[in-house]
């Protein structure tokens, strides 16, 4: 286990004991990555801020949701943010369909909209590992993975948009996840 992961576990333990300073430290560590993925998925600042706020509030109100025997706090929390972002996008899509407001969303942010984020070094290292692992995937596998993860699309929708059988989407998704898992596990061991 990396030292930073151990520090996260200690911060989480303190948050469970209602330690506000520990909560603020986790916000300092993960506010940027959380807002980054929420913005990438929702493409709307307003919704992204609500996603991040709700995720941190959920952490404060129910810290026991994180099971420290099942992996790093980082993975747990960022998965939580991602899930809430996808949920928010799907609700927004339903609302938009109902109110005919498709044409007036806030601008979509690009890949790297902010240069001023001060990030802990280990997160930068992990980010590099994740991006490098993604870059090794065959294009068609990376495509279905990113459409699902950052596009918030279901496999049925992905199959329709790409004009391929849903079975192919499932196969490519699993293959991509397996390769990433192996590559990142290798980095962890290294």
């Amino acid at each position: 286990m990396r030292e930073e992961d151990s520090q996260d576990l200690e911060l989480h333990r303190r948050v469970s004991a209602r330690d506000r300073a520990a909560f603020d430290e986790l916000y300092r560590r993960y506010g940027g990555p959380a807002y980054g993925v929420a913005l990438r998925v929702t493409a709307q600042e307003l919704i992204a801020q609500e996603v991040v706020q709700e995720a941190f509030l959920a952490l404060w109100r129910a810290p026991e949701a994180f099971d420290r025997t099942r992996g790093a706090f980082r993975s747990f929390f960022l998965a939580l943010v991602h899930h809430r972002a996808v949920d928010a996008v799907r609700r927004e899509q339903r609302l938009r369909q109902r109110t005919e407001r498709a044409s007036n969303l806030e601008p979509v942010h690009g890949e790297d909209p902010a240069e001023d984020v001060v990030e802990d070094a280990y997160l930068g290292v992990r980010r590099k590992e994740v991006r490098e692992a993604l870059a090794t995937l065959p294009a068609e596998q990376r495509q279905v993975l990113e459409m699902a993860y950052f596009g918030g699309k279901t496999q049925v929708v992905i199959a329709e948009e790409l004009g391929i059988p849903i079975g192919t989407v499932k196969t490519r998704t699993l293959a991509a996840m397996r390769k990433l898992r192996v590559a990142l596990a290798r980095e962890d061991e290294g």
């Binding site: 990555p33 980054g36 998925v41 943010v81 992990r126 991006r131």
Partner: peptide, 18 residues
């Protein structure tokens, strides 16, 4: 494993200061 991977994939997005 897959859930842990799902969390780490979030790091592929650029961090943005809230």
């Amino acid at each position: 494993d897959l859930q842990a991977l799902s969390g780490d994939l979030a790091l592929a997005a650029a961090p943005v200061a809230p």
